[in-house]
Every structure is written in structure tokens, then in C-alpha cells.
């Protein structure tokens, strides 16, 4: 008779005990050195790169905090007085420049620095940041959807501004997405501010949604949710490789771009593991992996340009001033938000 009562009782108390034990074990610090790495690299990339590090340095416990460029930047700046990150890995150089101007970065020369291209690192002798690769704007276009709607494939920024694409374009919000910001900054630099904003006004008329990540427009295009997504090169090529009716378009005028770079966070006590990580992050093996995803890397490798890129990919990159991008980020975002973010009712 009382067996079930006891059983139920035991179950309940077990839950209680388990929860107590569980909570306390999670408190017990492991004796491995633990470093916290903030990154804006793509999830699927981290999933390839990070195991390489863990294999080589099993004694260092890496905790990855991954988010979109905007979020990582904002988080970093918000924690200025009490930083939690030890290392920043693969964050937009324009974002790192802001952190540098706030005095948050610790200058550090990782091993093998001499092999890094000069324009892919901070100009100081002991640099505040060191790049790993470059990424650029690209369009993801769902050709099947375009055919259905009976409109031609857009091949340039100018095309995207045409009214025939009304309601078909998705674009990342530059305030939260690095891709969004490099696209907007690219347009403003290519066309000059006045014409740039005029163009953005036109583009805004065609936008169906502003989203919060650089990957989402491309995936939405792949899903056919919207026909055209303003995204970045890696994502566009990945989605095409999955086999959907996706075309990766590199706009004729050129692409805005940014460097994904690493930096050491200034803290009262800089962990040795953090330096180990930064040294590793520009070694040959991992550089080869970067090169499989991005055609332009900080240290040139012999890896072939990934399929889907234009042959002379370096010509696709516009003339880009990172310092300008960093200095004007606040102003541009504010203006952009005022102009376009209050568009609250869809269509």
C-alpha cells in the first residue's frame, strides 16, 4: 500500500538532492586554466577551428561566447570597467578599433607576426590587433524565386535599388550585424556620403525586413522566404554548396569588407593561456582552415580560392578605411536607425 507513496517521495527528494549536488558541482572550479574567448566567427567555423586548439592544448579550457559582431562589440564595450573576456577572436577590425580607442586592448605580438600582411594588422610595432582574414558583402539570390516573379538576376548595388525588387530584399541591421555595417559603410565610402544616403533611401524602399544577423538574409533567400539577401561571401557560398537554387552575387561596384581580427583584452592579470591562444590563432594549420572559408587571409596560404568566388577576388574589395569606419560608426548607426529603424509596420 505504502510502496508507491514511498516511491513518489523518493523521486521527489531525489530531484531535490540532485539539484543541490548539481548546483554545487557546477560551482567547483576545475584546475585547468580557463580562458574566455569572445568571437563573432560563424558557429560552423568555430566548430571546425576550436577542436584543433583543444587537441593541441588540452590543459586550457576555452569558453566561447559567440554572437553577432554588433552584440560582441556592444558587450565588450559595456564590460569596459570589468571585462570578462580574455581574448577576442575574429571580430571586425572596425569594432576592435573602437575598443582600442577606449584603451581596452593590451598590445601583444603573437608568434609569427612577421608573416602577417602589413595591411592586416595594427600598424604599431607591438600591435593591438592582428587580422586573420577578410570578409565582404555578397548577395544571396534565389534564382527560382526570381524566375517565378519574372525579374532578372541583380548583379550590382545599383540593380538592388531598382523598384522591380520591391519587398524582395532582406538586409542585416548595421547596428547589430557586422555584415550590415560593412555593407552600409562600403556604400557610403564608394558613393560618398550624400549619394550613399540617397542610395540607401532607395534601397530601403525595397527592403522587406531588416534582420539581426548577417547570415539570416542568405538563409532566408535559400529558404525562399525572400528572394534576395544582402549577406556576406562565406555564407552565400555555403548556402549555394548545400544545393539550393542559390546564386552568390558579388556586386559589380565592389564589396564593402572588413578584417576579422584577434586581440588581447587589457586586464590586471593577463592569463598565459590567452597568449597561447593568440599565438595559435595565426599558426599555419589554422590559417589553412581560414583560407578554406575566405579567399583572403592575413598570412597567404597555398590553399586554392574556395569555389564560387570571382577569380580576382582582391579586386572585388573596395578601397576601405577601417579608421573611418570605426570613427564614424556611432554617427552612421544613429543616422541609420533614425531613418530606417522606425519603419515599424511591414509594408
Amino acid at each position: 500500500m505504502k510502496r508507491y507513496q514511498k516511491l513518489l517521495f523518493t523521486c521527489l527528494s531525489l530531484v531535490g538532492i540532485l539539484s543541490t549536488i548539481g548546483a554545487s558541482t557546477s560551482l567547483v572550479a576545475q584546475n585547468k586554466e580557463k580562458i574566455t574567448v569572445y568571437t563573432a566567427l560563424e558557429n560552423d567555423q568555430v566548430a571546425v577551428y576550436l577542436p584543433m586548439f583543444k587537441k593541441e592544448f588540452p590543459n586550457i579550457d576555452v569558453e566561447i561566447v559567440r554572437d553577432s559582431t554588433g552584440v560582441v562589440t556592444a558587450k565588450l564595450l559595456a564590460e569596459k570597467s570589468n571585462p570578462r573576456a580574455d581574448v577576442v577572436w575574429g571580430l571586425a577590425a572596425s569594432s576592435l578599433l573602437i575598443a582600442e580607442s577606449q584603451g581596452m586592448l593590451q598590445q601583444f605580438a603573437p608568434k609569427g607576426l612577421n608573416r602577417v600582411r602589413p595591411n592586416f594588422r595594427d600598424a604599431d610595432k607591438v600591435p593591438s590587433w592582428v587580422g586573420i582574414d577578410a570578409w565582404m558583402s555578397a548577395f544571396c539570390v534565389n534564382t527560382a524565386e526570381l524566375k517565378k516573379k519574372n525579374v532578372p538576376l541583380p548583379t550590382s548595388w545599383a540593380d538592388l535599388g531598382k523598384p522591380i525588387y520591391k519587398g524582395m530584399v532582406v538586409m542585416p541591421n548595421p547596428a547589430s550585424s557586422g555584415t550590415g555595417y560593412l555593407s552600409v559603410a562600403g556604400i557610403l565610402q564608394m558613393m560618398g556620403e550624400t549619394r550613399g544616403w540617397q542610395y540607401l533611401d532607395k534601397l530601403h524602399g525595397n527592403i522587406a525586413q531588416y534582420v539581426h544577423s548577417g547570415s539570416k538574409p542568405c538563409r532566408q533567400a535559400a529558404n525562399g522566404e525572400y528572394a534576395i539577401g544582402i549577406s556576406f561571401d562565406y555564407r552565400a557560398i555555403q548556402e549555394k554548396a548545400k544545393g539550393g537554387p542559390i546564386e552568390a552575387v558579388f556586386p559589380k561596384e565592389g564589396s564593402g569588407w572588413d578584417i576579422e581580427a584577434n586581440a588581447l583584452i587589457k586586464k590586471p592579470q593577463v592569463k598565459t593561456g590567452a597568449k597561447t591562444f593568440l599565438n595559435w590563432a595565426i599558426t599555419e594549420p589554422v590559417m589553412v582552415e581560414y583560407a578554406k572559408n575566405y579567399p583572403v587571409t592575413a598570412i597567404p596560404t597555398k590553399t586554392a580560392i574556395p569555389a564560387g568566388y570571382p577569380a580576382n577576388v582582391e579586386k572585388q574589395l573596395i578601397k576601405n578605411d577601417f579608421r573611418w569606419m570605426a570613427k564614424n560608426r556611432d554617427r552612421i548607426l544613429k543616422q541609420w536607425t533614425e531613418k530606417y529603424d522606425s519603419k515599424s509596420v511591414p509594408k
Binding site: 530531484v15 531535490g16 538532492i17 539539484s19 543541490t20 548539481g22 548546483a23
Partner: peptide, 12 residues
């Protein structure tokens, strides 16, 4: 895990 802990600790 979180649901278990919350249920256990919370109920108690």
C-alpha cells in the same frame, strides 16, 4: 539540467 534544478530547488 536547469529545469531539474529549478523544479527541485523551487519546490523545496
Amino acid at each position: 539540467q536547469l529545469a531539474l534544478y529549478s523544479a527541485g530547488f523551487g519546490t523545496i
